[in-house]
């Protein structure tokens, strides 16, 4: 089976040879290509080639484009800092002073910030290996994007103190996200939306339902209207909101710190699950043996989840994780994930 047939089979519930495996190998692609992260994320050709090289090296089932959760915010006016060889971070949120709200603009995916880098890189990957795999493109959902436009702490405080401003930023962020969904549909890549700032590590279920979720619902609906499946990734704590995550209608739920057997029983009949080898403890600091043990445990807990399981990491595989540990995810899935 090609990775594409395997993932499709998993989503459609038809017979597959083994569970799909898609560890979140993102900035790590720069290691395979031997370039600093800052070159990887600012040049479409470098990123595209690095992605293809990493896919060839590890043979996972879904290559995923990403460098930071702040890319959409960057395209909307926020300034990022790019360390020479590490993932970028937010340097200056565009609306840190709310007086600058007017400077926030809806992103044009083919023009603004580094979005064209991703989209063109994704196009390259689709052209090279798209026959065999689905290519995924990760970007931040509106709640996380808006937090990068305003500054995370001020933003989550204002869900109480200034919901008007919060809603305004969320709607601008949603407009950018919808434009990205359309751009991705046009080039045939599968969207993955990530919302770490809406996780229960930060906000509770009530704020999630009131502010984050309505926008996620709209994005999921747009992806479906364009004939694409969509994955919702919320890293950090997600147990308090796992059912709401399923209510969004996302086809795949990507989760981090949560018991997979419990997730299976709560929402396994409503969405395919993706997760959740621990990124730091296991992928970075562990050994192939500890990776293997964790993959085995995940498959034992949720390998029979009604809507399928894609073996993955809970969040991004740290970019300097040992390659043997990524290989171990694949080997262990082949070993224990036979169907």
């Amino acid at each position: 089976m090609t990775p594409k047939e395997r993932v499709l089979g998993c989503l459609q519930g038809t017979k597959i040879d083994r569970l799909p495996s898609a560890p979140l190998v993102l900035n790590h692609c720069s290691r395979v290509a031997g370039v600093p992260v800052s070159r990887f994320n600012s040049d479409a050709e470098v990123m595209g080639k690095a992605q293809v090289a990493a896919w060839k090296r590890y043979g996972y089932d879904i290559p995923l484009m990403f460098t930071t959760t702040a890319s959409v915010a960057e395209a909307m006016g926020t300034r990022l800092f790019f360390p020479e060889d590490d993932a970028p971070w937010v340097e200056q949120p565009v609306a840190e002073d709310p007086a600058n709200l007017a400077k926030v603009k809806v992103a044009d995916p083919w023009k603004d910030g580094r979005l064209p880098v991703y989209l063109n890189a994704a196009k390259h990957v689709v052209a090279e290996i798209g026959e065999q795999v689905f290519v995924g493109c990760i970007f931040a959902a509106p709640f996380t994007t808006a937090s990068h436009l305003r500054g995370t702490e001020a933003f989550i405080r204002e869900t109480y103190k200034n919901p008007g401003l919060v809603n305004e930023l969320l709607d601008l962020s949603k407009a950018s996200a919808l434009a990205l969904i359309d751009a991705m549909a046009d080039i045939g890549v599968v969207p993955v939306i990530v919302d770490p700032v809406a996780s229960s590590s930060l906000i509770g279920p009530r704020q999630f339902e009131k502010f984050a979720m309505p926008r996620i619902n709209d994005i999921v609906a747009r992806a479906h209207a364009r004939g694409m499946p969509i994955c919702l990734h919320i890293c950090g704590i997600s147990r308090p909101i796992i059912e709401l995550m399923a209510d969004t209608g996302a086809d795949i739920l990507s989760i981090d710190r949560i018991d997979m057997a419990e997730v299976k029983s709560l929402v396994g009949h409503r969405a395919c699950l993706l997760g959740n080898v621990q990124p730091a403890e296991t992928m970075l600091k562990g050994t192939p043996a500890s990776v293997t043990a964790e993959v085995k445990a995940i498959i034992e807990s949720a390998g029979d989840s009604p809507r399928g399981l894609i073996v993955s990491t809970g969040c991004e595989t740290p970019f300097n994780a040992p390659p043997e540990n990524i290989e171990a995810v694949m080997t262990a899935t082949r070993l224990y994930g036979q169907r």
Binding site: E153, I156, R157, T159, S200, L202, I203, Q207
Partner: peptide, 14 residues
């Protein structure tokens, strides 16, 4: 006890 999350704690501190 996960009854309050970060925004609530920040507002309590305000």
């Amino acid at each position: 006890q996960q009854e309050y999350f970060i925004p609530e704690v920040l507002l309590c501190s305000d």
